[in-house]
Structures are given as structure tokens and as C-alpha cells.
Design a protein around this nucleic acid. Sequence first.
RNA 1: GGGCCAUUAGCUCAACUGGUAGAGCAUCCGACUCUUAAUCGGACGGUUCGGGGUUCGAGUCCCUGAUGGCCCA
Length: 493
Amino acid sequence: MTRKPPEPGHPADFLEARREKLNRLIGLGVDPWGRAFRRTHTLGQVVAECASLEGQRVFVAGRIMAWRSHGKAAFADLEDASGRLQVYLKRDRVGADSFTLLELVDLGDHVGVAGEVFRTRSGEVTVAVDEWSFLGKALRPPPEKYHGLRDVESRYRQRYLDLIANPGTREVLRNRSLIVRTLRDILDERGYLEMETPTMSAVVGGANARPFVTHHNTLGIDLYLRIALELYLKRLVIGGYDKVYEIGRVFRNEGVSFRHNPDFTMLEFYEAYADYEDMMRFTEYLIPEVARRVLGTTRIIFRGNEVRLDPPWQRQTLREAIRQRAGVDFVGLTDIAAARQAARDRGLEIAPDATRGQILDQVLDRFVQPDLIQPTFLMDYPVEMSPLAKRRRDDPSLTYRFEACVGGIEIANAFSELNDPIDQRERFLEQAGRRDRGDQEAHMMDEDFLTAMEYGLPPTGGEGIGVDRLVMLLTDSPSIREVIAFPLLRPRA
RNA sequence: GGGCCAUUAGCUCAACUGGUAGAGCAUCCGACUCUUAAUCGGACGGUUCGGGGUUCGAGUCCCUGAUGGCCCA
């Protein structure tokens, strides 16, 4: 590709203009990349403490976000993680040579400045610069200063530009960090130990999902990326830790949607000698408490609805919730053919060999979850959908399991853990049968886990929370991709 | 996987029923020592997502591919 040679004063394009400035800087013996710069204050601190700082000399640094030139003076807006601050660059103050060098400054450059804090006529806190230096030249221009970066694809592919240009994105990812930290704080306060379990292993389980496969070269074996944290955390409970949790990435080889990303963050916690009732009580404390600590309120807006997170949350059996919203008792319906037909009558596409669990999943997805705006526990899932949950004493076809829905999406899944290794083996066998019949989401037989269970898992309450979805909820984000810094996209062709 | 929509200058967006691709910001040149979406004057900047077709003529219509969004699965 040929390109016009840049004429002096008329560079062929914006990239060459910046390259040329860079070369001029190097030619002048100026280091365009800078070195560590000892700030006395962040930009936000200068603004916040301006009353006491007025008249004092400060050292601050930031990226140049706006530039207003006035002949022998100029104003620039600097930005760092703490905020934005205006600086005033006057020839009489910085000196003629240094002022001339400002011609080589571009939007997006990092600079460090020293100068006196003052207020302009209009009252804006400003630093009257007497010395400045380059801390990092930008060879590409930042996005448009007023509209920012709007193109959704560019925002995800080049998240750094999204972050530079859009304060709202900075706020969301910052809140994500605070939410995760707060989850840890609360779990720590409650005496849970944070653990780390394998992300790769020869057998995966803990959820109905297709795993990613990878390969270990020296061992010469295929390994799976984990789809849940459950089976290893339960081993730790067997080992004697009575309260454990893990926050970590899990990987599911399935489609992408506004609430699905192939890798996402799960929180799972397990408490020995507890049950799903305890998990419900803890959940309806945990979620509003996170909201209160991070956002300062338990009343949030999500997708245009006000959601009140305060306890107690609604409780409804799955059976009743479905009967109420779909008009059919799908849980109680034992005739599978009739169930398939009833689902089809309600506009669902049901495969001829669909199991009851698959039908219930679809009915839940379509009719029940979207309707559950206020926090709700859906309780008592059928045993065939819940191969790791304890059976109800009063009805062994159901389990002590609940899912929590908030804002119309599922954010948590919990149960009284199945601790009978004989029943667990039967459940795995039943799942393995489905696998043999082609259900790639069915559980694998996990002899190692069964062996562990045979050493004795105490009655245990366990729960998984979709951290990304919780962040969506608390930041009113319409898509999971808004709360994941670098969501998966197809590579650019 | 299916349906609908989108893709135009570095960024944000225009361009009626097919008829010379424009604006703002950014960039470059010039003026300006309290501006703040600074202002004023001038200039540069395009594979209209890729490929094919229809037509005297395609950003616009048709086919095909790519990527993304939304809805459905």
C-alpha cells in the first residue's frame, strides 16, 4: 500500500502527524516516554482539597483529554483514575522553550506537571503550570471528546478506548471490583475460607453444560476446563473445612446471549451442617448487603423496574410458579408425551425426545424467570434436574433445591447437598445413561468424587451465584458483556 | 442454528423515490495570555465492511460472504 509522502506542515494522515511529532521530540533530545513521576496529589485530590491547596505547588499527572489554546497560553484538561483537573499553561510561567514544546503535545498524551493551585475567574480549580514533561506519547488519537465511543463492537474489542472515552464504563467495572470485594468481605465475616480448586481436570461436573477440552502435552491426556466449582469444594468439606468458598472463572462451551458468556465468574460457597433453608436466609442477607455497601441502597433499578432487595424474599415452589404462569402443572405431569405437547401448545420448540427436565428448563426460561422481577426463591426442583441435591423426605421425586431470581434473571442456585454416596452413584449412573444417549450436557461418572463422598460428607448447604449477573443487576447493565472487561468476540477476519 | 437490523472520514452522525458522498469533533496552517463541547479564518481527510450482479449511473436495488446488535432456539 502506497501512501503520499507527508508534506511539511501537511502530514498525510493522523498517524503520521503523531509519528512526526514523536521523531521531532527524539530529535530535540526529549524523552517522549517519561519515567516514574512522583505525584504529590491525584487530580481528584487537588479538586477535593482545593481550599487548603490554593497557592501551593503540586505535582500531578494525567492523560490530556482536552486542549484549548489561546496563543501564548493554553488550558488542558488532565484525567487520571481519580478525576479530571484543568491545568493552565502560560508562556510567561513555563518559559519560552518549554512553551514551544507544547506544540508537540497531542490529545491522549500522558504528561506530568508541577505548578500552583489557583481558581480561575469562573471559579474552576486549576494548576498554573511552571514545569511539565511527557510521560507517554499517544501515537493514536482518542475517541471523539463529546460523544465518546458508541460503536458496541469497538467498545468490546477495544475496551481501553471505551474506558478512556466513557465514564459510565469505568463506573461499571469499578463497581464490579467493589462488588466482588464486598462478597469476599461478607463471606470472611461469616467465617468462610476462600479456597482455590483446579480449573482443568480429567473429569468435570457440578453443572449440566458442555465443557471446553484442552490437552496436556507431557501427560499426553485431554483435560476439561471446569464448568462449576462444586465437586472440588465439596471434597474440601469432606476434608473437614466446614465453611469454604471460591470465586473463579468457569467455562461453558455454549452459546452467547445477553446473560451468557463462555467464560464467566461464579461464586460458590458451602457450609457444613446447614441446609437450603440456611442458604435462603443467607442469600437474602448477602445480596441486599452487597447492594447497601456498594451502592448505598437496597432499592435498585434494573431494566426500568424498581427492585427491592430487602428481605424477606418471596418463596414459591417451582411447581406452583409454573402452574401459575404457564397454566399447566408441568412438575406434576407424569405423562411425558402430554408434557411435550402442552409445552408445544404454548409456543415452545420441544424435541421429540425432550426429557421432563429439558421441558421444565424451557418453561422456566420463557414463562417463569422473566416474570420474577422482585427477588424470589423458586423451591423444590425435580430430582432428575438436580443430580447433586438431596431428596425431599416428604416427596423423594423432588429435592431441597432452590434458584433465586431477581430482575427476571436467575442469579443463584443452591441446595441441601446430597451426601448419600449410594444415591449419588445412582444419580451419576442415570446421568451417564443420558450421556450415552447423546446428551452432552449430562454429568460424567466421577468415581473419584464418589470415593471422596464415601468417606463422609456432612449434611451441607451449598450455593452458586453468578457474579456477572449480580453485577449486571447492581449496575443496571443490559448485557453480561457490559460487565466483563473483555467479553469473547469472534476474531476480526 | 433461525429471523430482523446495522456497518459511510480517526470518532459521532447525515445523504428523499438510484443521479457530483456531507457536517461536527479530531488533525494541519493562521489569529488569540482566564478558556472549559473555547472562539474566529483557512486546509487536509473516503476501498460508503469484502466479493459479485442489475443499471447509462449503486452508499441506496439484488445475490453472497464477514463482523456486530436485538429477538427466537
